[in-house]
Amino acid sequence: MESTVEQYVPSDYLPIIIQFAAALGFVIFALVATHLLGPKRKSEVKGAAWESGIESVGDARTPISYKYFMTAILFVLFDVEIIFMYPWAVNFREFGVDGFLQMFVFMGMLLAGFFYVIKKGILKWE
C-alpha cells in the first residue's frame, strides 16, 4: 500500500475538524430549533421527575450498588491492558514466536487476574 503513504502535515487532520464542525452544527441547530419551535408551559407537576406516576421520593442522587463501581474499575484496568495488545498485534509478524510467547505470559497474568476477579464474585450479578 505504498500509494497511501504520503507526507503527513498537520493540515491533513483538517477534515476531522470539518466533520466535527458539521456534527456540532447539526447538534446546536437541532437544540436551538426545538427550543424555539416548541411551546413552553411550565407547571410544578410537569417539572417533577416522572417515576411511573408514583410520587417521587427524595433525590435520585443516591448511592448505587457497588458492583457498578467494580465493573467500572475493572474496565479501566482491562481496557488499558487490551490497548497494550494493539501495538503488539499490529507488529505480530515481526515479533514472531518470541513475541507470541511473551504475550502469552502477559495474557496469562491478565487471565490470572481475571479468574481471580471472577472467583472473588465481583462479577456475580444474581
Binding site: 448511592p63 457497588y66 463501581f69 467500572a72 474499575i73 475493572l74 479501566v76 484496568l77 481496557d79 488499558v80 491492558e81 490497548i83 497494550f84
Partner: peptide
C-alpha cells in the same frame, strides 16, 4: 505511565468510593 495510571485510577477510585460510603 498509562498502565500505572490505570492501576492508580482503579485503586484511587476504590479508595474514594470506600471513603464516600
Amino acid at each position: 505511565i498509562m498502565a500505572v495510571a490505570a492501576a492508580e485510577v482503579c485503586v484511587g477510585l476504590a479508595i474514594i468510593v470506600m471513603t464516600y460510603r
